[in-house]
Design a protein around this nucleic acid. Structure first.
Lengths: 191, 191
DNA sequence: GCCGTCGCAATACAGGTGCAATGCAAGGAG
DNA sequence: CTCCTTGCATTGCACCTGTATTGCGACGGC
């Protein structure tokens, strides 16, 4: 039974279990044994694929960020700047169960990264990339009354904040989408 | 050595230690023993004032929220709606060390509350109260082009998101303040 | 002066944690 | 067939966790 396993695939399987766990019971419930149980494997196997817990965490976060980015880029194909921006930001909001789970994980990691800088860099670069893209679109659309960079930062912060409020059940998902649209009206004018 | 202690005061002393700890090393570093050590007391004393760890957490979160609210109300005295809104939201952003610490704690608790609903209610009501106040001010200022409730929600989300980005070092504090001002220009027009 | 209660300290305990070490079956390489 | 690497499973260890228990000195009320 040797040699024929896809290491990458196994690691993603474990990271998936970690995500489910983090979303359901918080990052503090993430332990080697719990991840193993959730994935239906032995704790030894988890140790086999991640030499340390931190390595597992970093991998899982990277996986989530990759998924979000990939989904966002899939939207990017055929649209005017405004629709492009809207589509992209809607991908970030927790409007369905998958994205709710992802947002949950990202939030947990944000709190974690605020304390453990080894995780912060990944988050930072993903955000910077997205902010750059948004600013570019705002510039292309020729929005007036606001600096494109600041408009982009504002949009990103808005979506982050909305996600936060939806997750902590202060705000309904559809209201969050409406709030985003309201902001788009402020930036781009009436559709 | 009996009878002459202010129970409330002692609890706040412990909660302060908890805050420092949470801000410096994350909520996961908060344990009875660590809080005791940070406060310079015995773990027995912590147990004496909080029968359970959860009770301690809830108290600490309540204390932080109270402080933020109190500081916000102190601003509210003598100003036009726009300045009032600006002043209030600036109190929420992590622009100095105290507020950075508070934001850190709130973030940690947000991630925690997403999983432990016993903490969520306090956060929810504080946010609702603030949103109501903001909406009222927007209405009083007669902003056009946006529904006051949604404008308020947007502002709150923006500030939350900006705080998040500042904490995770994606964004500098002064840039966050500038982004807030940019949004106020969008809502209220040029000053 | 006695006593009860308050304010705390110390210790014990069962359970969970990350990690290291070891064992061992199953295949491919020679 | 033999070996040796791969892919796990088991077990053990030292440490940390929340909580319960017990002890005990110091005051306030009588």
């Amino acid at each position: 039974m040797a040699r024929r396993v896809d290491r990458r695939e196994r690691r993603e399987l474990l990271a998936d279990a970690l995500m489910r766990l983090a979303a359901a019971r918080g990052l503090e419930a993430v332990s080697l044994r719990h991840v193993a149980a959730e994935a239906g494997v032995s704790t030894g196997m988890v140790q086999h694929y991640f030499r340390t817990k931190d390595e597992m965490m970093v991998f899982a976060l990277g996986m989530v960020m990759d998924r979000i980015r990939r989904r966002s880029q899939a939207v990017a194909a055929p649209a005017a700047p405004r629709e492009l921006v809207r589509g992209l930001l809607l991908q970030v909001l927790p409007l369905d169960e998958t994205r709710r789970l992802e947002n949950h994980v990202v939030l947990a990691f944000l709190a974690y990264a605020a304390v453990k800088p080894s995780l912060a860099s990944g988050l930072r670069e993903a955000a910077a990339q997205m902010r750059g893209f948004l600013a570019e679109q705002l510039r292309a659309a020729g929005v007036d009354g606001v600096d494109p960079e600041q408009g982009a930062a504002g949009l990103l912060a808005l979506v982050d904040g909305l996600g936060l409020q939806v997750l902590s059940q202060q705000y309904a998902a559809e209201d969050a989408a409406a709030a985003l649209d309201a902001q788009l009206v402020l930036l781009f004018g009436r559709p």
